[in-house]
Simulated assay, not measured.
Amino acid sequence: MQILLIRHGESKDDFLKEGYKGSTDLQLTKRGLEQVEKMSSYISKEFPPEFIWSSTLLRATQSTEILSNAVKCPVEYLIDLREMQKEESKLDFRLRAENILTAVRERSKHYKRVAIISHGGVITKIIDSFLQLPKEHDVWFHTDNTGIHLLEYKSSIRIIRFSNNTTHLN
Rank of each mutant, 00 (worst) to 15 (best):
33 L>I: 15
45 K>T: 13
143 T>H: 10
122 V>F: 05
92 D>F: 06
104 V>H: 04
170 N>C: 11
125 K>T: 08
71 V>G: 05
55 S>G: 07
67 L>H: 08
56 T>V: 14
28 L>R: 13
108 S>N: 08
119 H>V: 00
149 H>N: 15
132 Q>S: 14
93 F>E: 06
34 E>H: 12
72 K>P: 10
81 L>V: 03
163 S>Y: 00
151 L>F: 01
27 Q>H: 13
82 R>W: 03
84 M>C: 14
50 E>L: 09
93 F>C: 08
133 L>Y: 07
31 R>H: 15
24 T>S: 10
139 V>D: 11
27 Q>D: 15
145 N>Q: 11
137 H>S: 10
126 I>N: 03
136 E>P: 00
154 K>W: 10
103 A>G: 13
38 K>Q: 12
160 I>A: 02
140 W>G: 08
167 T>P: 02
90 K>L: 15
163 S>H: 13
137 H>Y: 08
45 K>F: 12
10 E>N: 06
57 L>H: 09
40 S>E: 01
42 Y>G: 04
149 H>E: 10
123 I>S: 02
8 H>N: 03
163 S>K: 04
119 H>E: 02
116 I>W: 00
7 R>E: 05
104 V>I: 13
132 Q>W: 07
132 Q>D: 12
21 K>Y: 09
70 A>P: 07
155 S>N: 13
37 E>R: 14
109 K>Y: 13
75 V>M: 03
158 R>P: 01
166 T>Q: 05
35 Q>R: 08
91 L>I: 15
10 E>Q: 14
130 F>P: 03
97 A>P: 01
79 I>G: 10
155 S>I: 08
162 F>I: 00
146 T>F: 00
128 D>H: 02
147 G>W: 01
24 T>L: 11
29 T>R: 02
122 V>M: 09
146 T>I: 02
168 H>A: 02
12 K>C: 04
151 L>E: 09
138 D>A: 10
146 T>W: 04
118 S>V: 02
95 L>Q: 14
43 I>S: 06
122 V>L: 06
66 I>V: 14
24 T>Q: 12
71 V>N: 05
169 L>D: 10
14 D>F: 05
41 S>N: 13
44 S>A: 11
2 Q>D: 12
135 K>T: 11
92 D>Y: 06
127 I>Q: 04
125 K>R: 12
139 V>G: 09
146 T>L: 00
114 V>N: 07
82 R>T: 03
156 S>Q: 14
128 D>Q: 01
50 E>D: 09
33 L>S: 13
129 S>A: 14
147 G>L: 02
42 Y>H: 13
43 I>G: 05
96 R>M: 04
147 G>E: 05
138 D>N: 14
89 S>W: 02
7 R>H: 05
